[in-house]
Each structure stands twice: as C-alpha cells, then as structure tokens.
C-alpha cells in the first residue's frame, strides 16, 4: 500500500463523525470611517499613509526622496521609473531595485493588508526584493475586514497573491522591533480619493 493510501485509510478509520461547516458572518463594524481605521492599522504595522487627490503628489514624493541614480520600477500608469519590467527576463535581475511602485487591488481596514496578485506585479518577488515599496490604493477599494476581503478576492486564475500590510520586520533579537529584515525597508501607501 502506498503512503497515500495508508494515510487515507487511517483517516477513514480514525476520523470523527459529522460536524457541518458553520456559516461565516460578515461581522460589520460600527460605522467608523474605513480610511481612518486603515490609517491606524497601517501605522501600527510601521507603514506610512499619504492621502492625496493627485498623482502629482506621488511624483513629488518620489522626486523628493529618491535620486535619479536610484533604480525605480513603477507598474503604475503615469508614474515613470527607470527600470522597465518588460525588459527583465529573470527575477534575479531585480536585486538592485531601490523603489517599486505598485497598485494595490484593494485594502483591508482592520489590518491595513493590501492585496496584490501576480497579474499586477509582473514578478512574484518584485514587492519583496525592492528596498522600498510604494503602493497606490483607491479609497473606494477599502473593505472593512478579512471576511469581506475574501468575498472580494477572485482567486481563479491567480498563480500567486499576497496581502502586504507593512514593511519587512522582525523582532527575533530580544523582541526588539527592527524594520527591514529581508524585504522592503519601508511601505508607503498613497490613498487616492
């Protein structure tokens, strides 16, 4: 008997009976503005939030904080970087990226998690390998909590998807919080009206 059959056989023999799946409620909140909850959550996760009406603010932010010598890759229309993702063949070539700018598909207010799928990031490693990450999110794309988030996500035809809720961090040395473990050293979210 193969291990597969053996395991399945033992489960059949040993498993308890019954137990139906519960219905998961949406657990709607108390009506506090999602943007405010999202901001509080993001700050707790060591991210920064900038609310804006205009894409120019993003330009300005980048120009102020990054030099033209730095490698910037943007996947957002209207924001130009200097690394063309189309010309990258192997994700290892992304190793020197300083800044990546991506569009978040939607955000979750209760924990500031922003959903990205492979379709919007080109290479799976892109949001992790960069030194800094900017995500642009539309205010109308905020949902309250994770229950509503999973109602919204379409996982069909997604090879990889990730919730990013802050910069890379660790507390493995005596529980001291250090930002920038392996992935991006910062996360700045532009919340667009």
């Amino acid at each position: 008997m193969s291990s597969r059959e053996e395991i399945l056989e033992k489960i059949k023999k040993n498993k308890p009976v019954g137990a139906i799946l519960p219905v998961i409620p949406d657990f709607p909140g108390d009506g506090e503005e999602l943007e405010k909850i999202f901001e509080k959550s993001l700050i707790k996760n060591s991210g920064n939030l900038i609310s804006t009406n205009s894409i120019n603010d993003i330009h300005e932010y980048i120009n102020k904080n990054y030099s033209p010598a730095q490698k910037i890759c943007s996947l957002i229309k209207g924001i130009e970087g200097n690394v063309d993702i189309e010309k990258i063949a192997d994700p290892h070539e992304l190793k020197d990226l300083d800044l990546v700018i991506l569009k978040g598909e939607f955000g979750v207010a209760e924990n500031a998690a922003i959903w990205l799928s492979e379709n919007t990031m080109g290479f799976r490693v892109l949001p992790f390998i960069t030194q800094h990450l900017i995500m642009v999110l539309s205010k109308k794309d905020l949902v309250e909590n994770m229950h509503l988030a999973y109602k919204k996500i379409n996982l069909k035809n997604v090879g990889f998807g990730v919730f990013i809720a802050g910069p890379s961090k660790t507390a493995d040395i005596e529980q001291n919080l250090v930002i920038g473990a392996h992935g991006s050293r910062s996360l700045t979210v532009f919340l667009m009206n």
Binding site: I24, S41, K44, N45, V108, E110, N111, A112, A113, F128, N145, M146, H147, A149, Y150, L155, V158, G159, F160, G161, V162, F163, I164, A165, G166, P167, S168, K169, A171, G183
Partner: peptide, 24 residues
C-alpha cells in the same frame, strides 16, 4: 478570513503578519 484574523493577533498581538502569501 476567520483564521487570519485570529492567527497573528493570538501570536504577537499584530492584526496580521506583514506578508500573507497565497501560492497556487
């Protein structure tokens, strides 16, 4: 939705881990 709301909060008090990756 249920488990991710519980996991990090129970572990460290964070609302979620900063990366929650879904591999297909």
């Amino acid at each position: 939705g249920v488990f991710l709301r519980l996991l990090a909060r129970s572990a460290t008090g964070q609302s979620i881990t900063n990366y929650t990756s879904h591999f297909f």
